[in-house]
Amino acid sequence: MDIAEVLQHTSPELFLPELEAGDKAGVLAELVAGLVAGSPTITKQDAVLQMLESREALGSTAVGPGVAFPHGRTLAVQRLTVLVARSGKGVDFDSVDGDPTHLFFVLIAPPQDSGHKYIKSLAALTDKLQDDTLREKLMAAADYESFCAALGEE
């Protein structure tokens, strides 16, 4: 799966250019509030938050250098949805390398997704975000369009 395909599951409404929260719990809540505000079919804020918190209990999703990929399946969503968020100041997200996390790619999917579209999207993103120059461009992008353009570049 390529990045262009992953980007079909997000939208300008699902882009949070500057998170306010300064800790992990606050960021998770802000990300979920963003999902509910940006997606008309997601309404059960508590269920989504509970799922993402459980996922962090399994192991921190902050695995990329400066990047976290909170993800999972929940009954509370009807289709694969991707939200993108940034934190200029960085947040302690229990990252594998101990460094603060600046970029967040949230992927949530319904329980039934036989093609494993979300696992493939996750694989495409975790791979792509290894690139230092790309992450710098994403942090500097002025808006959603330039963010997606940078992400879509080969």
Binding site: A57, L58, V63, G64, T126
Partner: peptide, 13 residues
């Protein structure tokens, strides 16, 4: 795990 995710919390989950 190939993507870098650590699943050590399985027992606590």
């Amino acid at each position: 795990e190939g993507m870098g995710f650590n699943l050590d919390g399985l027992a606590s989950l």
